[in-house]
C-alpha cells in the first residue's frame, strides 16, 4: 500500500505536495491517503480530495483508504462541511467518523455539493442567493452590489464542469480568515472535477497554433487570459471573462490548476506567481476564486 500524506494545511497551493506523493498514474498499489495529522483544509482542499477519490474510482483501482484527521474537532468539521458524506463512496474511511450531518452554520456558505448537470447549478444558486447576500454583508462588510457578481461567478465556475469536464465535480463556498496573505476575511469558491482538464478540452481547436509548446499552462492561459473556449461560438468563453472582470473590480483572485500547471490572476495583496508549470500531475481541473472582505482601517 502506498501512503500519500495530506499536508497539515490543505489548500489550493499545498495541493501540489499531495499531488507529488501520488506517484505514477494510475497507481499500481492501493493508496492510503493519510490525513491523520491534517489540522485544516480549505474548500479547495476538500473538493480536490473528492476529485482524487473520484479519479481513482474511475481509473478502476482498489478503493483507497482515507485516514481521518485525529485532531480535536477536525474530523467533525470535515463532516460539517459535507466532506465525509461525499467521500464515503470513494474512500474507505478510517479513524473516528463523526456522524454529524452537513450543516450551514458559521463560515460555510455552501456545504460541499455535487455538480452533475445544469439543474444542480440552478439548485446551488437558489440555495445560496439569499444566504450570500446576508453573509457577504455581515461577515465581509461588502455592499449589496458585490452579491450579484458573486452569484454570477459561482454559476459560471460550476457550469465549467457541466460544459467542459465530461464528468461530475464538486463545489464548496466558505468564508474564513485569510490572515497571513490578506489580513482579513474572504469568501472562497472552490470547484473541482475529475474530468479531461483544460489541455484536452482545448486540444482539438488550439493545440495546432502552439505546436510542441502546447501544455497544461498554455491551455489554462488560453482559456483564462484570452477567453477562448473549445466551442467556435463567439459567445462562448463569457463565463470566465465575466468572472475575471468581477474579481478585478473587487481585488479578488482566481486560480486554475489543471494537470501539471497552475495559472493565477494575482491581485496586489498576494504574491503567487501568475504561472506555475512542471507541478506534479493531479487529475481534472481545480478552480478557486477569492473575494476579500472590506478593508477595515
Amino acid at each position: 500500500m502506498r501512503v500519500v500524506t495530506v499536508p497539515t494545511h490543505l489548500d489550493d497551493r499545498s495541493l501540489d505536495a499531495l499531488a507529488g506523493e501520488l506517484g505514477p498514474w494510475p497507481p499500481e498499489d492501493r493508496l492510503l491517503i493519510d490525513a491523520h495529522a491534517t489540522e485544516w483544509a480549505s474548500p479547495a482542499g476538500f473538493v480536490a480530495l473528492l476529485t482524487l477519490g473520484q479519479a481513482l474510482a474511475e481509473a478502476g483501482v482498489p478503493k483507497p483508504r482515507l485516514a481521518l484527521p485525529a485532531g480535536d474537532g477536525v474530523a467533525g468539521y470535515w463532516a460539517k462541511v459535507g466532506f465525509l458524506g461525499h467521500a464515503e463512496p470513494f474512500f474507505e474511511l478510517h479513524g473516528k467518523v463523526p456522524r454529524r450531518r452537513a450543516d450551514e452554520q458559521s463560515d460555510v456558505l455552501l456545504p460541499l455539493t455535487a455538480i452533475r448537470d445544469p439543474h444542480d447549478v440552478h439548485d446551488i444558486l437558489d440555495h445560496v442567493t439569499e444566504r450570500s447576500t446576508q453573509m457577504l454583508r455581515d461577515e465581509l462588510g461588502l455592499e449589496a452590489s458585490v452579491v450579484g457578481g458573486f452569484g454570477q461567478s459561482l454559476s459560471e465556475t460550476c457550469q465549467n464542469i457541466v460544459e467542459h469536464a465530461g464528468t461530475g465535480g464538486w463545489v464548496g463556498v466558505h468564508i474564513y480568515n485569510f490572515r497571513r496573505r490578506l489580513g482579513r476575511r474572504a469568501a472562497v469558491i472552490a470547484v473541482s472535477d475529475a474530468g479531461i482538464g483544460f489541455r484536452r478540452s482545448l486540444e482539438a481547436t488550439q493545440a495546432k497554433r502552439f505546436g510542441d509548446r502546447w501544455s497544461d499552462g498554455l491551455a489554462i492561459e488560453t482559456a483564462l487570459i484570452h477567453g477562448i473556449s473549445r466551442f467556435r461560438d463567439p459567445g462562448r468563453g463569457q463565463g470566465l471573462a465575466g468572472t475575471k472582470r468581477y474579481l478585478a473590480r473587487w481585488q479578488g483572485k482566481i486560480t486554475i490548476r489543471s494537470g501539471t500547471a497552475r495559472v493565477a490572476i494575482v491581485p496586489a495583496w498576494d504574491d503567487e506567481p501568475p504561472m506555475s508549470e512542471g507541478l506534479a500531475w493531479f487529475p481534472g481541473s481545480q478552480v478557486t476564486l477569492m473575494i476579500p472582505g472590506k478593508e477595515t482601517t
Partner: peptide
C-alpha cells in the same frame, strides 16, 4: 428574475 449569469445572458438576449 433573480440572478442572470453571463452565459444565460448570452443565450437569452444576445442570441
Amino acid at each position: 428574475i433573480g440572478l442572470v449569469d453571463f452565459s444565460c445572458a448570452d443565450e437569452v438576449v444576445a442570441k
